[in-house]
């Protein structure tokens, strides 16, 4: 996921404002207790808000929450 034509000089990381930290995979993440979890996705979204129920991986829990019935409470597919 390059955002310019130059070849990356190291592992490319993107910090999404208000969202996860995107790291090129595969990664091994060392947790507070010294245990490790791995992900071999081409891009890994690491949770930066600590709210993820899939921590250390992002599960979109950082999203702004709104009252239901608000105009942006919409129906959506559940996978893609």
């Amino acid at each position: 996921m390059t955002s310019n034509a130059e070849r990356p000089k190291g592992t490319r990381v993107r910090v999404v404002p208000g969202g996860p930290v995107l790291v090129e995979g595969p990664v091994e993440v060392v947790l507070d207790d010294g245990s490790t979890v791995t992900s071999d996705r081409f891009l890994v979204a690491l949770c930066a808000c600590r709210r993820s129920r899939a921590f250390p991986f992002c599960d979109t829990s950082h999203r702004r929450r709104v009252r239901s019935g608000a105009p942006d409470d919409k129906e959506r597919p559940a996978a893609d």
């Binding site: 999404v16 969202g19 996860p20 995107l22 992900s39 979204a45 992002c58 979109t60 996978a79 893609d80």
Partner: peptide, 20 residues
């Protein structure tokens, strides 16, 4: 499995779709 795979996969896909 189908849905647990999509929780994490689509958290990544959304970023890639939007930005790239």
């Amino acid at each position: 499995r189908f849905y647990t795979e999509h929780i994490e996969a689509d958290a990544v896909h959304e970023q890639v779709l939007r930005y790239d």
